[in-house]
Structure formats: C-alpha cells, structure tokens
Simulated scan of single mutants.
Amino acid sequence: MSHIVMERPSVETTGLERRKSVQLPYETTPRHQCSLDLAEVSAEVWLITKLAAKLLWAFRVSSKWIAMFVKLLTFTCLLLPAFLRIFYFWLLDVRVHKNIRYGTQGRNLLDVYMVPEPKAKMPVVVFLSGGAWIIGYKAWGALMGRVLSSYGIIVVTPDYRNFPQGLLPDMITDINVAIAYVFDNIHLFNGDPDNITIVGQSAGAHIGALVLLDAIENPSSIPWSPSRLRNFIGISGPYNIQDSIERFHDHGLDRSVLARIMNNDILHHSPTDRVTKLGSNQSTLLPSIHLFHGTADRTVSWHSSAKFAQVLQAAGATVHVKYYANKTHTDPIIEDPIEGDDPLLNDVIAIVRESSPPYSPKLPLQTTSPQRLCPHALVAAARIVNPF
C-alpha cells in the first residue's frame, strides 16, 4: 500500500547553524520522516542535558530548588500516559510539520499543526509556551495544537532560547523573528496572514506582551506591526515581575537568577509598567487583548492579569478578562484538557471564530469534549504534587 503524506513547503535557511535545518523533499516516507524527527529529538535531549548542568550551577542546587524539581518529576511521571500519547501524535501525525527553521540561532525552529482538510486562508494561532523562561519548548504546545487544529485553526509553536542559553532580550528577539516568519510564510501552509492570533502561557504570555510593546515602541526596528494581529491572548501571565519576585523565590527561582534572566532590568521587562508609558496614539496599535487566569494559581496570582487589564484599559486598549474559579497555574493547559474538560481552548476557539474576517472558513459554533488521555486518579494525584 502506498503512503500519502502531506507536502511540506520548502524553507530556505541562512547563516551558520548548530545543526542542519530540516529540508524534506516533497515526497518522503513516514519511516524517513520519523527517523529525522527522532534525530532532532536526540539533538534536543543533548542540548537540554548541557543546559541542565549550567542550570544546576546557576541555582547552586538549593534544597528548595531540588524539592521543586522532584515535584516536577513526580508530576510528569503521574501524567506520563497522557504525555506519551501526545508525544506519539507530535512525532508521527502527518499534520505536524516539525523543526522548520525561522532564524539563524540554534533554537530558531518552529512546528506547524495543519488542519485535517486545509482550505485557503485558514485562521492561525501562534502559541508561545511557558516554562519559567528556563524549560520552555515548542513541543509543550502539542496538546493545544492537537485540539485547535482539529477544529480548523492552524497552530504554530516557535521555540526560543531559554536561560542560561539566552536572557530575556534574546527570547524577545527570537519571538520577533518567528512572528515575522509567520507573517511572511504562513500562506504556504494555507494560513491567513491577516488572521493571526498570538497566545502565550505563563512566561510565554509575559514574553508575548513584551514583544507587542517593543513592536509599538520601536516600529522601525521590528519587521512586523502589532496592528496586523487579530488578538493577543495571555494565559496566567506574570505581567508585573516586581510583584512576582517573592512568589517565584518561594518556588525555587532565586531572586538573583530572576534578575539575571531579566537582564538586570526588572522594571523595563514588566509589561504593566511599560503600558503606563504608552502614548494614546501608540495604544491604538494594540490588537484586541484577552487575559485568562485561574483564581487558585499559586505561582502567578490572578491579580497580575487584573492589574494588567486595568492599565491597558486606562491606556485605551480593548481588553477582555476571564477568571477560572479554583483553577491553578497549569489546569487550563495541562490537567483540564488531559481530563477532557477544556474550557480554555473552547474560549480560544470562540475568540478566533468571532474575530475572523467574513471570508475566513467558518469554525464550528460548538465543540465536543476531547478524549480523556489519562485516568482521573492520576490527574488528581498530579494536581497535588504540581510544583506550579
């Protein structure tokens, strides 16, 4: 039986790189594709191993950090059945185009999650993963990509440098280049460059907000305009770093390490403070902003989104805020969708549907609950040990 696989657009690469970018021919076998993807995974594991050694040195292996790390390992082990199913989808599904190079840095790679039956000018979500600016990775968006793409939304998940490989300005630079790549190339995947929504979670929401502000404050140095975006969706974002320092310290992220991540400029890298300095003509360039936060978030208080919404509204931006009662920092993007209860992604689909232009392919008005990926008992236990 012959195999039919989805074609991947050719991607041109420039500059010296740590490894070769993925340049697949238009006709390839799933076996060949899988071997290439596994090679990329192996390269990432080696990179993570080297960076982990640097992290251990940076954190000086404090008892608090070790305790949080053990909790994270336990959390991962409890949800391993679900993570393995998601990894299987990410690795083998022909709709997932992996490791497409968007820039010259080693981690300037992104994944594209295609819809099952793509038409012209499909809506696009660019998802910026969280991970405390330290453990973020593009594959963390596989669960969101799996769900949203099944409902007709192309999902792009760019990777970006993490600490200690890079500082926050490096992360912002990477995401700026990735967004510019999406605007210039998403049509090759049947995506609509005039119907792009940025979604960020936790550190990804923080970076995304800074990227928007940089694009407004320095338009001549940014290769895209935020006014082209349909929406910005921030999930559980730490928008005022000064207010979050002690919480992060209690979770094992030392104050000095956090300051180093922020390039020793906490105030400049706090979106809440930056918005107050925007001129009225600048705030009009902001897209529609939607902020989501769980009221039981122990890592980043829901007050972070509340304060950010207040200063945005005062600046004249269009802001919508929704709080999820009794939801933690990761419930909306990990535990809930794993259990088949997905209010956040339903809200994201609704936002994209309602903001899409009239010519855009119509998204469903109602969604069905996704399949449960893990037994309830394991998810309940994971919630107890969750370090976030």
Rank of each mutant, 00 (worst) to 15 (best):
H268Y: 13
Y239N: 08
L253N: 06
D254T: 14
N264H: 07
D243F: 01
P238S: 00
S256Y: 06
D265N: 11
S244C: 12
V257E: 05
S256M: 13
R247C: 08
R255K: 15
V257A: 05
I266M: 08
E246K: 03
A259H: 12
H249A: 15
M262H: 08
D243I: 05
F248R: 12
E246S: 09
S244K: 03
S270F: 06
L267M: 07
R247K: 14
L258K: 07
I241N: 07
H251K: 12
L253H: 02
R247D: 12
H251D: 04
P271S: 13
I241V: 13
S244P: 07
M262D: 05
D254A: 14
Q242G: 10
I261D: 06
Q242V: 06
I241Y: 00
I266L: 10
G252T: 11
P238A: 03
N263K: 09
V257G: 09
S256F: 05
I261N: 00
D243R: 09
L267S: 14
M262S: 03
G237S: 06
H249G: 07
G252W: 05
S270I: 09
S270M: 04
L267P: 02
L258D: 12
I245S: 03
D265G: 10
I266H: 00
P238N: 01
R260V: 02
L253W: 01
D265Q: 09
L258V: 15
D250L: 10
S256D: 09
N264G: 05
P238E: 01
Y239D: 06
H251S: 11
I241C: 08
D265M: 10
D254H: 14
N263Y: 04
H249D: 15
Y239S: 01
